[in-house]
């Protein structure tokens, strides 16, 4: 690995100051499960690495039914699935965090880092998109809010400008009759990169078994994670039925632009997008029905 300088600020303001001072030469470090590999391979060559794990604001999980969730960008995956609010109110995002790598990786890797790495196959990103998560970004020019679906611009690239830091995610409190789910396809049971990943969140109208709101996020089927807007929209106001779900699955497939690679062909990815969309919607609906009685 080339020589680097290491800084470990305790506040967002200090981190932004360091990142802004060194511009393109600086890179935030969180769990390091992507960055340290990239440094070693020479894929990224920053001269300054700014460790953000000692910034308390970026390490918190704060949830209330009034305010919703503030999830620090530097919270490691293991702390997400150890958190009872996360498991209860955001099971889809929780299972996505739980799918990433081994325990060794989950002890370090964060949802914020997963997004900032900019991989189209990031497991937590479709789950965040499904939940309507917003990113709080702070830079030398102040603060801005970016929807997760607008965050990635190309493989490995994001909207973050030099000096900007992803500090936390804001996620709305779940409605009484809502829930989420995430499923991915890999050719084995554990420890692989998604061939396709689909996240969904649904809100039900309990009076007549209709879907009153829905969001679907797709991973590994385009150059960036995808918000399948039309697919989700097709569910709204519809009674839950096989036809309704099939229609959403077809629209989800239409939203993809997959490639052939060693993990699967474009044709296979389109097919699996349909299969997973059906399954993940069924799972989210089942959980939302259960939430009606348990919350």
């Amino acid at each position: 690995m080339h020589a680097i300088n290491y800084e470990s600020p305790n506040t967002v303001a200090d981190a932004v100051k360091l990142l802004a001072a060194h511009g393109e030469q600086a890179r935030p470090l969180c769990g390091g499960t992507d960055l340290i590999i990239q440094l070693r391979a020479g894929v990224r060559r920053p001269s300054y690495v700014v460790d953000v794990k000692n910034i308390q604001e970026m390490r918190r999980i704060e949830f209330s039914m009034q305010q919703g969730l503030r999830l620090g960008a530097a919270v490691p995956c293991i702390e997400i699935y150890e958190n009872s609010d996360m498991r209860k109110y955001y099971p889809g995002l929780t299972e996505a965090a739980h799918l990433i790598g081994s325990l060794q990786i989950q002890s370090r890797a964060s949802v914020g880092g997963n997004l900032c790495n900019g991989s189209p196959a990031a497991d937590t990103t479709p789950a965040l998109i499904a939940l309507g998560a917003k990113c709080r970004v702070i830079g030398p020019g102040g603060e801005r809010i970016v929807a997760v679906e607008d965050f990635c611009t190309a493989p490995g690239r994001t909207v973050l400008q030099p000096g900007e830091l992803l500090v936390e995610f804001h996620i709305p409190a779940p409605a009484r009759n809502s829930s989420d789910a995430y499923l991915r396809f890999i050719p084995r049971n554990e420890m692989d990169i998604a061939v396709v990943g689909v996240g969904a969140a649904v809100t039900l109208d309990p009076s007549d078994d209709r879907i009153s709101a829905a969001r679907i996020g797709l991973g590994a089927v385009g150059p960036t994670p995808i918000f399948a807007r039309e697919a989700a929209q097709a569910l709204v106001g519809k009674r839950i039925s096989d036809e309704t779900i099939e229609r959403a699955a077809q629209l989800a497939i239409a939203a993809t632009s997959p490639i052939d690679d060693m993990r699967g062909t474009a044709e296979f990815r389109r097919h699996v997008t349909g299969v997973l969309t059906r399954r993940v919607l069924a799972k989210a609906i089942e959980r939302a029905r259960a939430a009606q009685t348990s919350r």
Binding site: Y6, L29, G32, Q104, R108
Partner: peptide
């Protein structure tokens, strides 16, 4: 693999300064 603050992790993916 080593255990840091009670968690198992890959010491190749952590900087010594951390």
């Amino acid at each position: 693999t080593v255990i840091v603050n009670g968690r198992p992790l890959c010491s190749c993916l952590m900087l010594g300064v951390e």
